[in-house]
Design a protein around this nucleic acid. Structure first.
Length: 202
DNA sequence: ACCTGGATCTTCT
DNA sequence: GAAGATCCAGGTA
């Protein structure tokens, strides 16, 4: 397992878009006071450096965003629409900038907790969106800066490579919408349903 | 100081 | 298909 975490560190130290694809199939685990919740990553988006007009790195110059240039594996967490927390994993080559937005999980552990936190009956509604999964796993802004590769309560765990990966433009943004930086596991029902069409296989 | 626009989700019609 | 909830950063003054 030390080996697995090492390979994750290596994955996250490469190009952000490669990391976004490689994170599919990995697990996001959170041990909170209430109990353990965990899910398998099935949808991601890459946000690049200053050359990516949709990336916070190019849009803001705040201390929080600066973490995108920090050590690969750190968590970049921010609030969206004043309501939702979004989790990103810092990933870029040495000296670079970039992060991967975790957009959807397939619930693996702690389903009862997830249902309680989400107050939604269907399992498909628990983690099928970036704002949903942070609520289901109880990930808040206080998680910002966490090293997800350290063995802490909030962590990433490497998993088998996903075989069938689909790619499309990123969604919910207004710039560089055609850049093929959204990745998901083909056919997985836990992928966010919003604007699912218009995609292509790699 | 004020205004605007989001990497969204839910609950309506 | 549309809009409200609700916060924060950046631009403009």
């Amino acid at each position: 397992m030390a080996t697995r975490q090492r390979s994750l560190r290596r994955l996250l130290s490469g190009p952000t878009e490669v990391a976004a694809r490689g994170l599919l199939g990995c697990m996001l685990v959170h041990e909170s006071a209430d109990g353990v919740t965990a899910g398998r990553i099935v949808e991601t988006e890459a946000y690049l450096d200053l050359g990516d007009p949709a990336s916070h790195a190019a849009m803001f110059k705040t201390p929080a965003v600066a973490i995108m240039s920090g050590r690969p594996g750190l968590a970049y967490v921010y609030r969206s629409y004043g309501v939702h927390a979004m989790v990103n994993v810092v990933a870029h080559p040495p000296g670079g900038t970039g992060a991967v937005l975790i957009r959807a999980l397939e619930p693996i552990e702690g389903e009862v907790l997830m249902e309680t936190r989400r107050r939604m009956g269907s399992a498909l509604a628990w983690c099928s969106g970036p704002g949903k999964l942070t609520q289901a796993l109880a990930i808040g802004l206080d998680a910002h800066g966490t090293d997800l590769l350290a063995n802490g309560p909030l962590r990433l765990v490497a998993g088998p490579q996903v075989e069938h990966v689909m790619v499309s433009g990123r969604i919910g943004i207004s710039r560089a919408t055609e850049w093929p930086l959204r990745f998901w596991e083909a056919g997985n029902p836990h992928v966010s349903a919003h604007r699912r069409g218009h995609s292509f296989a790699e």
